[in-house]
Every structure is written in structure tokens, then in C-alpha cells.
Design a protein around this nucleic acid. Structure first.
Lengths: 203, 203
DNA sequence: ACATAACCGTCCATACCGTACCGTGGATTT
DNA sequence: AAATCCACGGTACGGTATGGACGGTTATGT
């Protein structure tokens, strides 16, 4: 029991718990259409993580001698125990979000070369540009998120996820999130000017 | 124009655009109560990123000779131009979510040893344990997210964010997200058994 | 046979992360 | 005035992450 394992270790353990004897490659594919939606996990890290787990004795791998040198991973007793401990343990970890669109929105009223600065007297020289930028941003985000929403929809429609399963439930979060954020951006798109300090008495 | 800058570079540029002449330390504080909610940004990266930006000539820093050796950062002309270009550029980047709670939920129906040594009643089937685990997980997540919701509430109440500003809008997303996810976990909590394949023929 | 595509794994240079740590200097004690 | 404390402000460092490019291997098509 070295230091606490990083979450990514449990991604691998958990996946193996459900599909023992898989190769990293297969895990990668599964990740991409499941957990990948709420836990980013690039391919190369998978191999790295698998290696670490082997070193710690939580996983064993058997590598094909010839051919593709496939590595078959499976949990050891200790690996399964560790996984179960983690699943039963409490967590207060909060969702961590990376959203470039929101970032851009946040920074939006910026003094750019269009020539405005702190619109002291309400001369809206650069404000129009900002409104423009916000409008475009919103439009793009709507499109992007609609795409994502569709993808979730297809995933559900594909029937791979048993209705009422935890796996299905996590996708449900994805669906709701996308609907929520699309609504949000639609509101922004509907009145981008509203954000540039039109009505707001502020400092 | 070196290779495209990573998003984190624009975090610094954007922040400086709004508070020119700040020290990394100050930026860190601002981040923690604003962008940090939708773009995680650890302290140490701030200094690293600032250094990179200086090297690229988008930012200049003046370091105090004595005392605390504070570094004051400000945008160069080029830095501001780069920022403005980014703000105006289109992005189709999609939200990236890291949520450990969902991860645990996803992995939940796992074949664990029923006899968890903490309380060995010995007779429990795996299903009951799983229902239990899901219930606890949901309860914790609800508490955690309620805490986060409160924090957003306080942020809004504090009045630091001009109503109708983009900054306020981004917090709105946070609020909606938290409400959404709390609802989700409440549903799970209400009938965790529902997820364990109670009614369904599966496997 | 040959080309082509899908498999499967590896490498690598950077970048990132978090935490522990270290000096500063002002305020409060003693 | 010396000792203590604590908010500042920054650095170091070991481990992790990233993602694209590369290089072999089998299957598919022509």
C-alpha cells in the first residue's frame, strides 16, 4: 500500500473488474464510449497506468509471445480488493469542469484595439464588437453542444446500456448537462447585448 | 507566431487584460473565486505559464529587487493582440468533465467479496451491498454539491459580479449545473435498487 | 500478390499537478 | 526590542498526463 492511488488507476481497475482479461486497447475503446464522457483518459495513459498497476501487483499481464504482442490484463486478488475498497469508500470530490467556451465568455468585455476602454460615458464604440463576439461564441457553442447531445442520444439508442443501469444513469447526466448548457447559450444568443452592460448599473 | 498557445496561456492573458499589473499571486486568488469554477488552474502552473508568456514576449514582468521579490505582470502590445484574436476566434471545444462520483457510480455493480471485513454479517449477497454503496455515494454527492451550490450562492450574493455581466453569467452555469446534478443524485438516492437490475433481465 | 485499412502497442518531449518548503515583512506579544 | 506569529509571494521536485507520430501485425479487398 504505497501512497493512495490516483483516480486513473481506479479507472483501469474498475474497467477490468467488468471485463477481465481485456487488453489495454480494448479498454481504450470502451472508455471512449462510456467513461470518457465524464473522465478524460487518453490512450497512452492507459498503457502507463496498466504498467504501474502491474508493478504494484494489483494487475497481472500476459503478453503474447509473437504476433501483436497483445497484453491481456487481469485483476489480482489484491487488485479486486483495492477496487472494492475504493467503491465503498466515501468521496466528497466535486465535479471539475473545463469549458473553453465559458472561459471566453468570462473574458469577453475586453479592451481590444477596436478602441474602447471602460466605457465611461457610454460611447459604445467597441461594445458592438463585443456583442458580436458573444453572439458568435454562443452560436458555435450551441452547435457544438447539440452535436454532443446527439452523440449521447445515439449512445442511448444503440441499446448498449441496459435501461436503469448505473452506466445508463451516467449518460443521463450527460444528456441533462447538454440540454442545460444549450439552454444557457440560447439565452445568451437571444440577447448578447444584455451582457455588455446595457441595463446594468455597475462599476 | 509559435505554435498555438495552450488554453492556460489565455487564462493568464485574459486575467491580465482585466487586471493589468497584477502579480501571479493575485491572479491565483482571483482565479480561485471565478474562473476556477470552470477551468481548473493550480497555482504552480500559473508561475510556469507566466514564465512562458514572458519568453514569448506576450507579457513583461518586473520583479522587485528586494523584499518579497514580487513579480508584476503586464500585457505587451502583442500579448493584448493575441488575447483579442483568441476572444474573437471561433471555438468548437466541448466541455470536459471530471467527476469522480459518476465514475464510482459507473463501476458500481461489481463482484466484490460480500464479506467486507468492517462488518461481517457474512450472509449478505453482493446486490444488497451494491445498493448500499450507491445510496451512500448519492448521499455524499448530494452533500458535496449542495456545498458547492451554496458557494455559488454566496458568490452571487456578495455582489462582486455585476448583474447581467458575462462573469455573472458563467456563475449562472455553475448554479444550474449544481441544481441539475443534485436532482440527479436525489433520484438515485430515492431508488438505488432500481439501478442494480431489480426489474431487469440483464447480464 | 499487392495495396489498404484496421489493429495494437510504444515512444517522447513537453506540460501539468500538488505539495512541501523557504524567505519576507508586518503585526502582535512579551 | 526581541520573540513570535502569520499572511505573503515564490520555488523545487517527483510523479503524472498528453497526444501525436511511428512501427510492426493481421484482415480485407482487387
Amino acid at each position: 500500500m504505497p501512497t493512495a492511488l490516483p483516480v486513473s488507476a481506479y479507472v483501469v481497475l474498475g474497467l477490468l473488474g467488468r471485463h477481465d482479461g481485456a487488453t489495454p486497447y480494448q479498454l481504450d475503446q470502451r472508455i471512449r464510449q462510456s467513461i470518457g464522457h465524464f473522465w478524460v483518459f487518453p490512450r497512452s495513459q492507459l498503457y502507463a497506468e496498466a504498467g504501474r498497476l502491474v508493478r504494484r501487483g494489483l494487475v497481472v499481464e500476459r503478453q503474447e509471445e509473437g504476433g501483436r504482442h497483445r497484453r491481456t490484463l487481469s485483476l489480482t486478488e489484491e487488485g479486486r480488493r483495492e477496487l472494492c475498497r475504493w467503491l465503498a469508500a466515501p468521496t466528497r470530490a466535486i465535479t471539475e469542469i473545463h469549458d473553453e467556451g465559458l472561459l471566453r465568455l468570462y473574458f469577453q468585455p475586453q479592451t481590444c484595439e477596436a478602441g474602447i476602454d471602460a466605457d465611461a460615458t457610454g460611447a459604445a464604440t467597441g461594445a458592438a464588437d463585443t456583442v458580436d463576439a458573444i453572439g458568435r461564441l454562443a452560436a458555435e457553442q450551441i452547435r457544438a453542444h447539440e452535436g454532443q447531445l446527439d452523440e449521447y442520444g445515439r449512445l442511448v439508442a444503440s441499446g448498449t446500456l441496459p435501461a436503469g443501469s448505473p452506466q445508463r444513469a451516467t449518460v443521463e447526466v450527460g444528456l441533462r448537462f447538454e440540454r442545460m448548457i444549450i439552454d444557457f447559450w440560447r439565452e445568451i444568443a437571444a440577447s448578447p447585448a444584455h451582457l455588455v452592460g446595457e441595463g446594468g448599473a455597475e462599476t
